[in-house]
Design a protein around this nucleic acid. Structure first.
Lengths: 130, 130
DNA sequence: GCGATCCTTCCAGTCGCTGGAAGGGTTGCG
DNA sequence: CGCAACCCTTCCAGCGACTGGAAGGATCGC
């Protein structure tokens, strides 16, 4: 199958698939005219990658996950470790954003939001804390 | 004051300050030898930028915020609008990450994390849902 | 005069794509 | 057979907001 079809079937954009080939995540064959040819295995791999990316795993994590997936002698502990590290990073990011959110809500609440130029948000950004 | 001092005083790295000059957020003077010279106003501006960036405002938002800050005829409603739009984006991001987090927790829970190669995480990524 | 520390510019890299240009191949229809 | 429509290719540039590093010049204290 060619790139358009595998793109539709895997849900991964053609551009992204070419990029994944560039960085060595997949190695499709080529027809004599230069078109990429993908196998069912490539389709599985791309779907796997699509799901992993949706869970927020980095490309390097995905590389490791695929290696583990194809390693019959893997220990599930290694996969779990990788996933838990990722989870930790996601939770850290959430905490940061929630902190941001709380500060934003706080300053927004104090701002009248009317025609007057007096603005608690600007005051706060300018360092004039209340 | 030169870039090292304003960097220390504002908490904004020198590299970042040069970058901000590049993109027109600040316009320091220059000494005859080419060194940047910063005023107290620049210090206020950089501190303002530092605080806005900590709240997650984009550079373009910061540009708008500074314009509003320096516009005596502003309406606080405009600032509040900008901040609320940003808050919306932050909350959206949080929701996305929480969704990710929930999925991750779910798959991680189902993985033994032992010496066996059987792994619910890989199964899930491979499309074999339980 | 010398070394340490400052400053300068410019280029490249981060991350994971995404858009677009320029060009060639294939398919289907009249 | 000609043509349009649509597929494919490569390569380059850009996103956001910096950050690291190289190469070189200026200043400062001893």
């Amino acid at each position: 199958m060619n790139i358009g079809e595998i793109s539709k079937r895997s849900g991964v954009p053609a551009k992204t698939i070419r990029y994944y080939e560039d960085i060595g995540l997949i190695q499709p064959e080529r027809t004599p005219n230069g078109y990429r040819v993908f196998s069912e295995t490539d389709l599985h791999r791309l779907s796997f990658l699509g799901r992993a990316r949706k869970l927020g795993f980095s490309i390097e994590d995905c590389r490791a996950l695929i290696r583990l997936y194809e390693d019959e002698a893997r220990a599930s502990a290694e996969v779990k470790d990788l996933a838990m590290n990722h989870l930790g990073r996601v939770e850290e990011k959430i905490a940061q954003l929630q902190h941001m959110r709380n500060s934003l809500v706080e300053v927004i609440e104090d701002c009248a939001g009317d025609h007057s130029p007096d603005c608690a948000i600007l005051d706060r950004l300018a360092g004039r804390m209340l």
